[in-house]
Nucleic acid binder design. Structure first.
Length: 502
RNA sequence: GCCGCAUUCGUCUAGAGGCCUAGGACACCGCCCUCUCAAGGCGGAGAUCACCGGUUCGAAUCCGGUAUGCGGUACCA
């Protein structure tokens, strides 16, 4: 079961910090999942914090999408907002950064007071010009320290020009070393950070790298599990934790999810919104199973796991180091596995919102045995059951007379065969209008005229369903009912007659 | 450019010095089953473990270098 936290008796606390600047992204979902599994495996606490400091790009709609889809996946949290715009729960709230501004201001003030940060009066235009010069000189772009040690007179001069100060963190000159649960020891020279970094804009709003550290410290986060794209930012974070006088958490940088061309998965090249997969009819169980295995493996050959089983088995040390291409084929396969594992009744509930109400609940449950193993996604059911919903005329409009004719037959022969089938079916008593009886009669009829069963069934299938590919024929006929079957076969016969006559 | 991380079948991965003539899954191919399509069963092909050098009796596994890929390099998150 749960083993002791890796770093002694400190209770594990992890967090997921999505930014509501877009719908829940596949990568964010997996990072959330890994955090969740890590916390549950160790009996720790899972915190959700909304990083909504970017008011211009963020929206309540996206926050709702993120929270809703996280819930849909089965990922729940112990602290944080429970519903979008709703009450937070937990002792370290509020859990939305837009409501924590006083804390950030106070922490920035502390850094200023201790001399670990300073006011910088350079304008964005000046900084841009400086960067361009450095680039022209083939130097790595970096802040040149112009405002590092301003005299009072210089400061007053800037102020009287109407300039407002941004706050910069004084980056010490050293090599930062930190341990990563997945990658081991990482060393990065602080020089690579490009000089003293702005932590509060000149308009007073704090920057991501600052608030993330302030909040992780304030919320007593012990393990920061996040995407590999944050690895290079980590030295800055370590330095800030130390400057603020807080314990540095343990880091774990998980590999990225990749487009087929191995670039970081993006909206441009892949479907990235979890909600889109949900609308296509992927099951959350399949999604979770798939995401968990994208970069992690239990080390055995088992591959089907529930969320709880994953939480039991998950070990962060076994997370793979390299990026993983999102393999849609594998997701499709897993989804099929999960669909087939449901009972007909369970499947009917999941399918309800994907299938028109023209097919009632009873009808839906009844057709499931015919379509269950033919679905990859729940949305596939729409096409699979369409023959039950479409009118006879709509079905007839789907095909031309030639399509009814099997490869080795002609129109006249097909018309005769189909007429024979029609008579057999018409002859059935209502009580005998069943899958078994239908099949037996049609097989006998095929044999009687010397046709292969497959050839004989082809025009029936197309006449009944309007399609050359369909769920099992006789089961479909039973569900359709005798009258509609006969009407559709008559329509097919009428079509054939037009080409036989010609 | 600079900094960092990575590199086992097409893809996801197993692999923690001898159990590896490298295992599994998806995809692919073939056969079987079969009313179409699926599902299922059986089988096949597919990786000189990026490359080069070391360490070792022995390396996919340890070390160094190279190459390639990716990520980062903001008063974005």
């Amino acid at each position: 079961m749960a083993k002791a936290p890796a770093d002694g008796d400190r209770a594990v606390r992890v967090r997921m910090a999505p930014s509501p600047t877009g719908p829940l992204h596949i990568g964010t979902a997996r990072t959330s999942l890994y955090n969740y599994l890590f916390a549950r495996h160790l009996g720790g606490t899972y915190v959700l914090r909304v990083e909504d400091t970017d008011a211009a790009r963020g929206s309540d709609e996206f926050e709702r999408d993120i929270i809703d889809n996280l819930h849909w996946l089965g990922i729940n949290w112990d602290e944080g907002p429970q519903v979008a715009g709703g009450e937070d729960i937990g002792p370290y709230g509020p859990y939305r950064q837009s409501q924590r501004l006083e804390l950030y201001a106070a922490e920035a003030e502390r850094l200023l007071a201790s001399g670990q940060a300073f006011g910088c009066y350079c304008t964005p235009e000046e900084l841009e010009a400086m960067r361009r010069e450095q680039e022209a000189r083939k130097e790595p772009p970096h802040y040149n320290g112009r405002c590092r040690s301003l005299t009072d007179a210089e400061r007053d001069a800037f102020l009287s020009e109407g300039r407002r100060a941004a706050i910069r963190f004084r980056v010490p000159d050293e090599t930062v070393v930190f341990d990563d649960l997945i990658r081991g020891r990482v060393e990065i020279a602080a020089e690579a950070l490009g000089g003293d970094r702005v932590i509060v804009r000149s308009d007073g709003s704090p920057l991501y790298h600052f608030v993330v550290v302030v909040d992780d410290a304030a919320m007593h986060i012990t393990h920061v599990i996040r995407g590999e794209d944050h690895l290079s930012n980590t030295p800055l974070h370590v330095l800030l934790f130390r400057a603020l006088g807080h314990e540095v958490p343990v880091f774990a940088h998980i590999p990225l999810i990749l487009n087929p061309d191995r670039s970081k998965m993006s909206k441009r090249r892949s479907q990235t919104a979890i909600s889109a997969y949900r609308e296509d009819g992927y099951l959350p169980e399949a999604m979770v199973n798939f995401l968990a295995f994208l970069g992690w493996s239990p080390g055995t050959e088992e591959e089907i796991f529930t969320l709880d089983e994953l939480a039991n088995r998950f070990e962060i040390e076994h997370v793979h180091k390299a990026g993983a291409v999102f393999d849609k084929d594998r997701l499709d396969y897993l989804n099929g596995v999960y669909i087939r594992s449901l009972t007909d009744e369970q499947l009917a509930v999941r399918l309800r919102r994907f299938v028109s109400d023209a097919l009632d609940d009873r009808g839906l449950v009844a057709v499931i045995p015919l379509i269950k193993e033919r679905m990859v996604r729940l949305a596939d059911a729409r096409e699979l059951v369409a023959f039950l919903i479409e009118t006879d005329a709509e079905v007839a409009d789907r095909y031309g007379p030639d399509e009814l004719v099997p490869a080795k037959a002609d129109a006249a022969g097909t018309a005769a065969a189909l007429a024979r089938a029609r008579d057999e079916i018409a002859d059935l008593a209502p009580d005998d209008f069943s899958t078994g009886e239908l099949e037996a009669r049609c097989r006998r009829a095929a044999e009687a005229i010397g046709w292969k069963a497959g050839d004989f069934f082809k025009p029936i299938r197309i006449g009944i369903t309007g399609r050359s590919v369909s769920p099992p024929l006789f089961g479909s006929m039973e569900l359709l009912g005798k009258d509609r079957c006969l009407a559709r076969l008559d329509a097919a016969l009428a079509k054939l007659a037009t080409v036989v006559a010609a």
